[in-house]
Design a binder for these strands. Structure first.
Lengths: 165, 165
DNA sequence: ATCTGGAACGTTATAATATAACACTATCTG
DNA sequence: CAGATAGTGTTATATTATAACGTTCCAGAT
């Protein structure tokens, strides 16, 4: 599977999505080994749940799903999400208070997100030109950038076709 | 007073800041007239409180300050903030769950924000180049943009000088 | 001047998101 | 095995936001 920015918008069928999930888990396992971090049952399970769809999922939704395996409390979920975030395996979407699997982990990064207002599907971009023009604009105000939140709402290709403006 | 993007970073003295506040209130009053909206006591007071500093303020902080004038409950604050947002008089900063006065109201817009991690001061940009490159990147994925959240954390000029990296 | 409809506000309760604090367990290291 | 550390369980609570419904206020019509 080749990772294009709009992969999330084209992954429609369940069969194919199994690949997304298992690849994400494999990458995560590898990354944890490299970083000497423990990929515990809970962390794996939470990552799997976050990857269930190409859509952001709330912490309490994850919690509910986790509770099907036994009793769990919010801190467990937040701890797992924090861990996964620190490793760059998931992103938190500030404008939605929700989490999404990272499309190309490897090292922590901010990323840019296209979020469909209709079907809620999210695609991650990592366009250098965006980062650059933002950094340049900030620099013009004498500001040094350390982190960028770029979340773009709109209509994805499929939804745009289905319900044209 | 000329509005430059980094105005927030250069407005240090209290005397000068009174201008920011009273100008904001005057602009708001005018805008409400034009839009045939009511600029009630509460709305004016909330806007004034949001403008107390060039820093985002939480809804519950506003509430506390409002309560010095008499008992008030959260919905009152949220309603005023929602109203002010709809008129483009304040912005909500998603990554902070906080609100800030809009530097150049007139019509609702998204804006881009530079937020100093050290002193918390926020400056609003409105750089067409940023909006454009984002829209262009989105379009390449067949995505149509309707709203952009751009929040940039880092160090403002003063704090950068004070505590160089 | 009064009536009236809708907007604004007051009030109570509660939803949704997130974290503090501390005890217990599992895993690694020597 | 002992001790240290990271991870998890558990309870309680903080923080942010909204639902629902009753009351008040105000602009425009009579």
């Amino acid at each position: 599977m080749t990772e294009t920015p709009q992969a999330a918008f084209t992954c429609q069928d369940a069969q194919h999505h199994q690949n997304c999930i298992s690849e994400a888990l494999d990458r995560a396992e590898l990354l944890c080994q490299q970083q000497q971090q423990r990929f515990t049952t809970i962390r794996r399970r939470v990552l799997e749940l976050v990857w269930q769809q190409h859509k952001p999922i709330g912490a309490y939704e994850v919690l509910e799903l986790l509770q099907q395996d036994g009793r769990t409390a919010p801190p467990t979920v937040y701890r797992a999400l924090d861990f996964l975030q620190q490793l760059g395996l998931v992103h938190r979407i500030a404008s939605l208070n929700a989490y999404v699997g990272c499309a190309h982990p490897g090292e922590p990064h901010d990323g840019q997100f296209l979020i469909c207002e209709s079907c809620k599907t999210l695609a991650e971009l990592d366009v250098a030109a965006i980062t650059c023009v933002i950094e340049k604009s900030a620099a013009e105000s004498g500001f040094v950038t350390s982190r960028q939140t770029v979340e773009i709402m709109g209509l994805c290709p499929s939804c745009r076709k289905r319900s044209p403006a």
